[in-house]
Design a protein around this nucleic acid. Structure first.
Lengths: 145, 145
DNA sequence: CGCATATAGTTACCATGGTAACTATATTGT
DNA sequence: ACAATATAGTTACCATGGTAACTATATGCG
């Protein structure tokens, strides 16, 4: 999350950064603007998911299972490879999804430690129903990007 | 935070979104890429601030006081106007900054509810010392932006 | 004036992010 | 075979985000 509402003017950035690398202060201004825009976008997405009793993470967990070619399940550690999230946080997200019947789990026969995670009919339908709004938010015009 | 490491291919986005608005799927791809890049950037900034016993928010609180023209202090509610953060979160951030001697507070004489917040010599020096690294991270080249 | 409303800031509680350390199972190497 | 190491997932604990409701003070208005 990036909180700054009113971005510093170029003059202000120059004032702060000119001693160090004046040649890069335009980059700095662009990055700050990008940070602000994407933070706003992330807030919109989070609000949207919250209105469906989801979070971005729980949505993405379902997405990476859904988009997996050739298989209808993933193990938690495979999800960790696909999402930039720590194991404990993923573990809890999965627990919540299972509690909400949005994920089903099955012990793996080869590896007693591992758990197969698959989408349920409910979550497949939920995914289909929320995707339009998701893409809508993502494709909405922002000020500059 | 946006977690997805491997972004969906254009073909995948089309598969998901073509029923709804195929004409916008390029926007979607661009936005997802932007989200990922800015999430990575935010992580780098957070790590940098953490290495100085700060957070992005506490840094920005000091910055908005420092950058205020004509005055050397702000009230908490004025900081709320400048930063997109809830009052309780700001309240705690301020408490931590005061505890670390990075902010000094003084009761306002006109309004007994309000508290004047100013930078301390320590925080002015700290700001100066961390700004180069901050701009460095912001101006570092990313893959596409 | 004095009551209703607004504002400044805090408290209580919850959601979600992280790391370190743990249990249980699998694998590796001698 | 079995000890050492690696891996799957969880637990415990902390940081930081949010909203609702609270206290205290200020303001507006009949």
């Amino acid at each position: 999350m990036f909180f700054l509402k009113e971005l510093p003017t170029q003059a202000m950035i120059n004032r702060y950064s000119e001693d160090y690398f004046p040649e890069r202060s335009e980059d700095v201004a662009k990055k700050l603007q990008g940070l602000r825009e994407y933070s706003t976008l992330i807030r919109k997405l989070e609000d949207y998911f919250a209105s469906h009793n989801l979070s971005q993470l729980r949505f993405l967990v379902m997405m990476v299972i859904d988009r997996e070619p050739d298989r209808d399940h993933l193990f938690a550690h495979e999800i960790t490879e696909r999402l930039d999230v720590s194991k404990p946080v993923l573990s809890r997200a999965i627990k919540k999804l299972i509690a909400a019947s949005l994920l089903s789990s099955k012990k793996d026969k080869q590896d007693a430690r591992a758990v197969l995670l698959s989408l349920t009919p409910t979550s497949k339908e939920l995914l289909r129903s929320i995707l339009p709004g998701y893409f809508d938010i993502l494709s909405a015009q922002s000020h500059s990007v």
